[in-house]
Amino acid sequence: MQLSHDYAEHLPQLVRLSQGEEQPDPHLLFLNEPLALELGFDPGWLRSPAGLDLLLGHDTAHAMAYSGFQFGQFNSYMGDGRALLLGEARVGDDFLDLHAKGTGLTPFSRPGSDGRATLSSILREYLVSEAMHALGVPTTRGLAVISTGRKIQRGHVRPAGVGVRVAASHLRVGTFHYAQLGDGTNQLQALADYAISRHYPAAIKSENPYKEFFRLVVESQMRTVAKWQRLGFIHGVMNTDNTTISGQTIDYGPCAFMESYDLATVFSSIDNGGRYAYGNQPHI
């Protein structure tokens, strides 16, 4: 099947055309076949060299732009520094993003970054996101885990990997920060119109669609965080570049399920003040 590039076509100022790096010895370690079928893919084709090229970002792909409040400090120019939006699959009336992480450098990569990811972190995100899905929490899904055959330095030398995830979209709160800093109201309104059409079309009929959009985003995020609290799940880095407009859980970095009840529990080595502690998640 052919992926569309609906987001890039509607909002070209919020993406940069990019491509995944060539990998020395790529192997598809795991494919979520039920999810692949749901997206309209032939699992056998995804396992082929052409399918692997798609998953590694060797076809048309884009790095997404966004800003973010990171532990309360605003970073105006961010974006996908080691990930690519591969495109969208149409499922019924909806678009679903395919997004690959660990694909190499992009126009948004930070100085000194290699744009890669450890295979262990990719496996971790796959396992936790699929567990959250099974537990009824709105979340990105894991589609594929790929070993690249490359070794990278992360404290120790470790094997590198690429993970492909699926989401209702990768529109973040930080995407709106970025649009607001662009050409003013026009870019921000275009993004809001796109987000409403894709995620909350019922808001179009309200007296004030943008106010209704805001209310619906808040409600969706509240429902998600309430489910985190019920499960004792700690996201670890609830920066605005890691929070979605759809309300889906995204970016499983230093996350964990709390083993004993303690409101002050944190799970990020740099969260010294407990900003994103378990007990603070609803407030944040």
Rank of each mutant, 00 (worst) to 15 (best):
N280Y: 00
I284Y: 13
Q13N: 10
S48T: 09
E88W: 07
L119H: 02
K205L: 14
M238P: 04
V91N: 08
R230V: 13
K227R: 15
T243I: 15
G104L: 08
T148W: 04
L105K: 03
T148M: 13
K101Q: 07
N280S: 08
A144T: 04
N280W: 00
E21F: 04
P282N: 03
M64A: 12
T244I: 08
G253C: 06
I152L: 07
R110Y: 11
V225A: 10
V225H: 04
G273P: 02
Q153A: 09
L54W: 07
A203T: 02
V162Q: 06
L17D: 05
L14F: 03
W45L: 10
T244S: 15
N239Q: 12
A8C: 14
G57W: 06
I122A: 05
L28V: 05
R223D: 14
F233P: 03
P26H: 06
G20D: 01
A100K: 12
A179F: 03
H156W: 12
I122Q: 03
R82C: 06
S113E: 14
F41Y: 09
T249M: 05
S206P: 00
L55Q: 04
T185N: 13
K211W: 07
A160I: 00
A168M: 11
D42F: 13
T139M: 09
P201T: 08
S268V: 03
I250D: 09
P138I: 05
A63F: 09
G236W: 00
R47W: 06
G87E: 05
F257Y: 14
V237S: 08
T175L: 03
W45Q: 15
G92F: 12
A264L: 12
T243N: 11
A63G: 07
R165G: 07
R141P: 08
Y178R: 15
R116F: 12
I284V: 11
R82I: 02
S121E: 13
R172V: 00
L171Y: 00
G232N: 07
